[in-house]
Amino acid sequence: MQKLGSKRLVMLLSVIVFLGMAGGLLAQDAQPKGAAAKGTPQVRITEIVLDALPSPEFDDNPKPQAKTSGNEWLQVLIRYETRGKEGWLDEVQLKCHAVMMPYKAGKPVVLNAEVTYLDVMDGLHNAVLYVRPAIVQRYTGNKRIKKTNVAVYVEAMAGEGEPVVKELRQSRDIPDKWWEAKEPRVVIRDNELLPPTETPFAGFDYDAYEHLRVMRQTR
């Protein structure tokens, strides 16, 4: 009986040692994954702000200035925060959608664009896009912008990570998931959310934004 008990004790100790070694190997294998997850690129949209702006006038223009037409540009300001490996992200992608509801008769117009910013340092950043006055007047029937008739939906992604989303909607008259609507229910205009480089605001606050890659069509 004592001999049999000794064998059982030896077997039990062997199993304990084996399980301990296996557990150590599993712990070592899990450590790099945890470290990689900690360094995963991250982006977070903190705020979306709408504004209506007249076209800028430049005092050093030698030609006579035309009187203000009363038309307004819609400005979409997107604030976002990033964290990357060693303090940088190679790029941040923003897939942006805006809808403008008509004042009277007509269909809503959905505007789409995708922008990519390069070499983004950790911290808070701004992105800005514009809608031309002609688009505003054509599809809303008014020169002036009523911000409650506008909604914005943004998807942000850093590298190959999962996108994060944020919506700005100030009116219940704007339907849910409007950014998924298809023609003929809505009018769709791709690449009509313009970066500053394609507007009269190109020279303003250059250092407030990251370097922009060429825009790509979204649909």
Rank of each mutant, 00 (worst) to 15 (best):
W179S: 01
Y130P: 07
G23N: 10
V10H: 08
V152Q: 01
G161M: 03
P184Q: 06
R216E: 09
V120A: 10
N112V: 08
P195V: 06
V150F: 00
Q31Y: 13
L89N: 02
K67W: 09
Y80A: 02
A66E: 12
R144H: 14
K3Y: 08
H211L: 12
K146L: 13
K104M: 14
A52K: 11
G23Q: 09
R8S: 11
E86A: 14
D122Q: 08
G39S: 12
L124G: 10
K63E: 14
M157E: 00
E72R: 15
G24V: 02
K38S: 14
V76P: 00
I16S: 04
G141T: 02
G39H: 07
A127K: 00
G106A: 07
V136Q: 06
P175N: 03
V186S: 04
V76W: 00
F201H: 13
D29K: 13
Q75D: 15
Q75L: 12
T199R: 00
S69K: 04
R169Q: 14
C96V: 09
N126S: 07
M11Y: 09
A156E: 02
D176P: 04
P196M: 10
F18Q: 05
Q217Y: 05
N191H: 07
R132F: 12
Q217P: 07
A113P: 12
V165N: 11
E198M: 13
P133I: 05
E91K: 08
G70L: 06
T140Y: 01
Q170N: 05
F58A: 09
G23I: 03
A156Q: 01
D176K: 10
K147P: 09
L74M: 13
L124N: 15
L19D: 05
G34N: 09
R216A: 09
G87S: 08
E198F: 13
A52N: 05
G106N: 08
A202V: 06
A134E: 15
A52Y: 01
T140N: 05
V152H: 02
L25T: 10
M100Y: 11
E114I: 15
D59K: 14
T197L: 10
E210W: 03
V15L: 15
K143H: 04
D51Y: 03
A52R: 07
E210I: 00
V214S: 14
K95A: 00
P175W: 02
T148G: 03
P41C: 04
H211M: 10
P54Q: 11
Y117Q: 15
I78D: 01
I48P: 05
P195E: 04
I188C: 04
T40L: 10
A27E: 10
D90M: 11
A113K: 03
R172I: 09
A22R: 05
R189L: 15
V120T: 12
K107S: 14
L89C: 06
D60A: 12
A127I: 01
H125W: 04
V150W: 00
R185K: 14
Q65A: 15
A151C: 05
A66R: 12
E47C: 03
E86N: 15
G39N: 12
V10A: 10
I188N: 02
E210G: 10
V76L: 01
Y80P: 02
G5Q: 13
P184A: 04
L9S: 13
N71K: 13
P62H: 05
V92I: 12
N71L: 12
E155G: 06
